[in-house]
């Protein structure tokens, strides 16, 4: 088992929010991911053991959601909203600007491991479209020429 004491503490804390360990699995994956950025096969196996859940069950949930990463990602996650409100307000231009700034396409990670660029469905910020999120910060409306400055704020 490769969990640190701090991870165990956090896991135990969230397990207390549910009637049993099994039910905590989804949140537990997020907790571990928050510290490690992504969930390796080993991390999943350890988590399965800790919670008494099979790896198949964990992966069944992980591969369902779009916010559980089973492959390495960058230090910062850039999400560009592609739903119809933002789409009609300039998603294509915003996306092009982000891709140009990062030098990677959707689903990819910059070579320096700084950013992973991902599409996201509606961020609930249609009134601020076109919108994007970097980690937990919502930005919008974002004009293509603001992209460099926004991304520059993340090291």
């Amino acid at each position: 088992m490769s969990f640190s004491d701090e991870e165990i503490r956090q896991l135990d804390a969230i397990i207390g929010h549910y009637p049993d360990r099994r039910a905590a699995a989804a949140t537990a994956m997020r907790v571990v991911q928050a510290r490690r950025r992504w969930l390796s096969d080993d991390a999943l196996a350890d988590l399965g053991e800790y919670l008494g859940v099979t790896v198949a069950e964990l992966d069944g949930i992980a591969t369902f959601g779009n916010m559980v990463f089973r492959k390495p990602v960058g230090r910062h996650i850039v999400l560009v909203c592609d739903s119809f409100a933002c789409w009609s307000l300039g998603y294509a231009e915003l996306r092009a600007a982000v891709e140009a700034e990062l030098g990677v396409g959707m689903g990819q990670t910059t070579e320096d491991g700084r950013f992973t660029l991902l599409p996201i469905v509606c961020l609930g910020a249609c009134d601020r479209g076109p919108a994007m999120m970097v980690d937990d910060h919502l930005h919008g409306p974002v004009a293509p020429d603001q992209v460099a400055e926004i991304l520059g704020g993340y090291s």
Partner: peptide, 15 residues
């Protein structure tokens, strides 16, 4: 054994 993924790509198999 389990179920993985979603939409028209639901995968049935082992981990």
């Amino acid at each position: 054994f389990g179920v993985f993924g979603l939409r028209n790509q639901v995968y049935f198999g082992r981990a």
